[in-house]
Design a protein around this nucleic acid. Sequence first.
RNA 1: GCCGCCUUAGCUCAGUGGUAGAGCAGCGGUUUCGUAAACCGCAGGUCCAGGGUUCGAAUCCCUGAGGCGGCUCCA
Length: 651
Amino acid sequence: MSVRPPGPSGSGGVKAGGTAGAEPLVLSKARGFMILGGTAMTDEAHDEEEVLEAPERGSADELLDAGAVDELGPMRHSAAHVMAEAVMDLFPGAKLGIGPAIADGFYYDFELPRPLTPDDLAAIEERMASSIAADHPIVRREFPPAEGRAFFAERDQPFKVEILDDLAAKAAASGEPMPPTSTFGHGPFVDLCKGPHVQSTGRIGPYKLLSVAGAYWRGDEKRPMLQRIYGTVWATQDQLDRYLWRRAEAKKRDHRRLGVQLDLYSFHDVSPGSAFWHPKGQRIWRTLESAMRELQDRHGYQEVATPILVNHRLWEQSGHWDHYRDNMFILDIEGQAYSLKPMNCPESTFIYRARTRSYRDLPLRLSEYGRLHRNERSGVLHGLTRVRQFIQDDAHIYVRPDQLAEEIGALLSMVKESYGWFGLEPRYTFATRPDGAIGDDALWERAEALIRSALDDSGVSYTVKPKDGTFYAPKIDIYIDDALGREWQMATIQADLTMLPERFDLTYVDEHGQPQRPIAIHRAIYGSLERFIGILIEHFAGALPLWVAPVQAVLIPIADRHIPAATELAGILGGRGLRVEVDESDNRMQNKIRLAQEQKVPYMLVLGDREVEARTAAPRARGAARGEQQEAIGWEVLADRLAAEAASRQL
RNA sequence: GCCGCCUUAGCUCAGUGGUAGAGCAGCGGUUUCGUAAACCGCAGGUCCAGGGUUCGAAUCCCUGAGGCGGCUCCA
């Protein structure tokens, strides 16, 4: 069964995913699933049982960022105004916050006498329709500043007045004259607004209101909580339908849903924000961990392990007690405050200081897969991507200042290599000193300059996030988008001249016998293993590449008499390090295939009388089209091909 | 943490004040099958927890927990 995107067929301008990664086994190309393209798929409507098919190499970006957005901005902004008009109409006395266009739509914030319900959204949508049908011209009007303020004050719009007062204050501070108050209005509605807008409300295309959410006024949790209505609007009904369809598809590849469906992990309220890893999920984990260990071994890392439960004195020394205590789980043990470690870094210094370090010892690369606990506020927990306990592929690298740039270069290449194993495209940011950081200005300036030049030397493009560094170090952060377009931080590379080196008084002896300060690089490449696996599952819609798949092949005996041969083949494949299962159930072959397909197993190997006779098996790739059949292949050749495909980490 | 919504069988969900339901999964039996669902039967429930209203609560109210959508936060 397939799912069908709405709209006319063949008109989608977006590239489809590639084919299933099945070159060694499958002669004809498996059919890629066009998750965005307009290729109409078959079948009647299925409700609960829709199978999510993966665009094999489709990225989250393709899934959500399809379709040009920029030219839709004015229309979306106008739609926000029309929605505000409708809300003012239905809720007299509503106070308006702000209402911008955003990617794929718009929102508007309101202060209302009561919470909105889904029925309200329907009523607002309906009221919007009449304003759009009336095709009111959208007109800009300027007022002298005082008049503008009075206009919104008279209409009892305190948030608008606050915005104007802030503009006035800013103008006064800079000595510039206060600009005139710009408004846009249509029909009876007037809003403080710089524009631009479409010419009239009739130009607003098909729209839909999506959700209501709370949002602090001006993003400040000390200010009132407003009600934010999110909506989407497009130039054509077809575009709107497609957007809604894409949204539904993205939801289907949510790792929280797929984790249950694929039996990888679960969450239980006895430990909110912490995953229970099932056998198959743990296999994914081990695969990723051993791949990273291998990469680290090649790059001269040494693995260490440090305690999880630590006396708070350590955190006082590191600065966490002052800067991070709210996020730490603290326990009283015989009258002493202990904490579950939220980071590995301070403890690595004990290993550094275990003996006198020579300049010849550096770089000293200590890696650690330690379990970390962070007390995240309940409202922010989110599947595997925001948890309270997790494991990082962490490392602390102690270098001489002259070695920093080269080491960062090596790290960037490790990121590139390992993300390439999954076809992920990282985005880089450079985060600078935040307010309230520890350490003196000179060290920060030096650290930031060193990172910046390492970044420039490496040739990667990056954006700067001012004041987004940690309290002890500027950093390079690497981001990925998930299936729903949310951005997640993955890898991080931090150049620490202050916390570990200064607060723990780390030294090495230079070639003149003098003590010197090393620099500590904190880095994690996957970042949190939990988060990385969650993102991977969404990226591949659960259809993990052969080398990561928890079950790489299911052997399907057609009848019970074929089970012994299937078991024998499973032994051969297992002997080659492949993870395989034999389906010994008394299901019919078709059902065995269906179940393996639903579990997104990369290969199904069918054995019937012909195959058992010839000691072959008929391979079927997960991406194969319905009805597609492959020629049987001899067991040894099959084992060679599968093992080679897994070893090469082919996508 | 804040605002709103949600929580019924292992999973997906129906049930809006009057005897707790379906499909899938599970178990038993029959079937041994050629590329995405064989057939018959059985069993399965603290209707999230606690309190209240009512003759009677899965259903209405209150409190709490967890989840979802956002906001804030995210070393």
